[in-house]
Design a protein around this nucleic acid. Structure first.
Length: 485
RNA sequence: GGCCCCUUGGUCAAGCGGUUAAGACACCGGCCUUUCACGCCGGUAACAGGGGUUCGAGUCCCCUAGGGGUCACCA
């Protein structure tokens, strides 16, 4: 398809949510796979809730995910400005047009009046619809109201016959009877447009060809179409993506743990695994394939392959996927992600080399699901510890021959010529044989002595990286510990 | 409540009138082994319910139920 333009239009009132991230991703994929443009627009007409901080963090998160935009508030473009708060003149122009053509009208009903009417309707169990009281106010009346200093909103004249049908690319035709809608407000009394009006005008003036957004907007779509119609605009294509739900099928919120992209980043998830996981949450090609790089996704992406049913996100699968990427990416990337934290822990002081740090990270990475977990697995390579795993002590330090084993191990450590994993293993196995015990019976106590833990990477690699002197002191320390207890 | 959308294992999902109803995560076994992780092998587990249409229905139609969304001078 030619000349495709899509947009992601968050309102900067908080962090980027994984649901938002996924609709941004689908937009981006659609644009990239069709050689179209991906536009970022900030819907910040609610000046009390919008903030510059939110705007910045949303843009950072999108960038972190690799969802770069072609036009947007920070980089401009020929259809700007890209923040609604800067587009008042545009809205005014179209509002004027509707007013002049008598397709919209000023309404002087106060918010209090309207609320009372709504409450009354509710009590009587009737559906509330605006009465249309101001629909045919005379020019003189309008002038008079304004002269009295009254504030007015602008309402759209909605036809009370016929129907509006949304031809949705994902859901097919969805019909709405026009009688469902009242003359809804398109401009507030402070002259700012309401959401539906701003969206319609922006999507049209920015030449958006496909509106891909969350399903929660499906019910708003006919209203926007009514606006398009009144304005004489041609409607874009619509595609409504289902929502992401919490594990209990309710709407995803903070109480369900991490929901913001930023939190996933801080927890040590990689952008490529988040993108991969999010893409699969609602998009399936029919091919049996779990791991996708963006190039492949771009090649295969089609709106028709997006699921209509809502998806519950499963952090365990995300973690599994993240672990997969963690094992595959360049070591240097993990190292640089970890450096700051390691620095803060005092792990990279004077005598610790980059190389040592890298070797440790590489050794433990396959045990971790997140970047942060790597640090947990690596701790004993950088810090002394003062307690041993309790069950381990019971199993490996309290046997009759425990001391004997550690003394023999100490000898090997002290006398090993090369101190390499291979050679250490050979000597230790030989020693076990001489003592007529299983190699495992030596390995476990030594592991506990060196790490304080019962689970570590292969012992001999751990030894090699730890180095001779540290191994000696730790085994000695363990011997002392056993003697004392 | 009105309107709209959705409904295949615990989760993501394939399926597009005829299949022993894939696969992945999770879970449970086993193998590997030096513990853990990885990897490999195997297992448990699903068409929400009821009516139609059809020789034949997870696939088409209707109803019911459940879930979600939306009905603001929020977006």
């Amino acid at each position: 398809m030619k000349g495709i333009r899509v947009r992601f239009a968050p309102s900067p009132t908080g962090k980027l949510h994984i649901g938002g991230a996924r609709t941004a991703l689908f937009n981006w994929l659609f644009a990239r796979s069709n050689k179209g443009k991906f536009i970022l627009r900030l819907e910040d007409t609610d000046l009390t809730r919008s903030s510059e901080d939110s705007a910045r963090s949303i843009m950072e998160d999108l960038q972190w995910l690799g969802l770069n935009w072609d036009e947007g508030p920070d980089k401009g473009g020929s259809f700007g400005p890209y923040r609604q708060s800067e587009r008042l003149p545009v809205y005014r122009k179209y509002l004027q047009k509707l007013l002049q053509e008598n397709k919209a009208y000023y309404c002087f009903c106060s918010a209090q009046e309207l609320r009372a009417e709504r409450e009354k309707a509710q009590q009587e169990k009737r559906d509330y619809k605006y009465s249309g009281k101001c629909r045919s106010l005379s020019k003189n009346m309008i002038k008079k109201h304004f002269q009295e200093g009254k504030k007015a909103v602008i309402r759209l004249k909605v036809p009370d016959t016929g129907q509006t049908v949304v031809d949705d690319l994902i859901r097919g035709k969805v019909e709405f009877a026009n009688t469902l809608f009242d003359d809804f407000i398109i401009a507030k009394s402070d002259e700012w447009p309401t959401y539906n009006f701003a969206v319609a005008v922006d999507d049209y003036t920015m030449n958006i060809t496909h509106v891909i957004r969350a399903e929660e907007h499906l019910s708003n779509t006919p209203k926007q179409m009514l606006i398009y119609e009144a304005l004489g605009f041609q409607v874009p294509h619509f595609a409504h993506v289902s929502m992401i739900l919490a594990p209990d099928r309710s709407k995803l919120s903070k109480r369900h743990g991490a929901t913001a992209v930023e939190e996933f980043r801080n927890e040590g998830y990689l952008p490529e695994s988040l993108v991969n996981y999010l893409a699969l949450l609602g998009w399936a090609t029919g091919k049996d394939k779990d791991f996708w790089d963006v190039e492949e996704m771009i090649r295969k992406f089609r709106l028709e392959d997006i699921s209509r049913s809502p998806a519950i996100y499963d952090k365990k699968k995300l973690s599994w996927m993240n672990g997969h990427y963690l094992r595959r990416i360049n070591l240097s990337r993990i190292v640089s992600l970890l450096e700051k934290e390691a620095q803060a822990k005092g792990w990279l002081e004077k005598d610790v080399s980059q190389e040592y740090f890298g070797r440790v990270v590489d050794l433990v990475r396959s045990r971790a699901k997140t970047v942060n977990e790597i640090l947990d697995h690596a701790a004993y390579f950088f810090e002394e510890f003062d307690s041993y795993d309790e069950k381990g002590v019971e199993k490996y330090f309290c046997k009759d021959n425990s001391l004997d084993i550690l003394y023999k191990a100490l000898e090997i450590i002290e006398e090993s010529p090369s101190f390499t994993a291979g050679e250490l293993e050979e000597s230790l196995r030989l020693q076990a044989e001489k003592m007529n015990i299983k190699a495992a019976d030596m390995i476990h106590p030594v592991r506990l002595a060196l790490s304080g833990r019962t689970a570590t990477p292969g012992l001999f690699e751990v030894m090699e990286i730890l180095g001779r002197s540290r191994c000696i002191s730790r085994v000695k320390k363990a011997i002392e510990y056993i003697k004392k207890h």
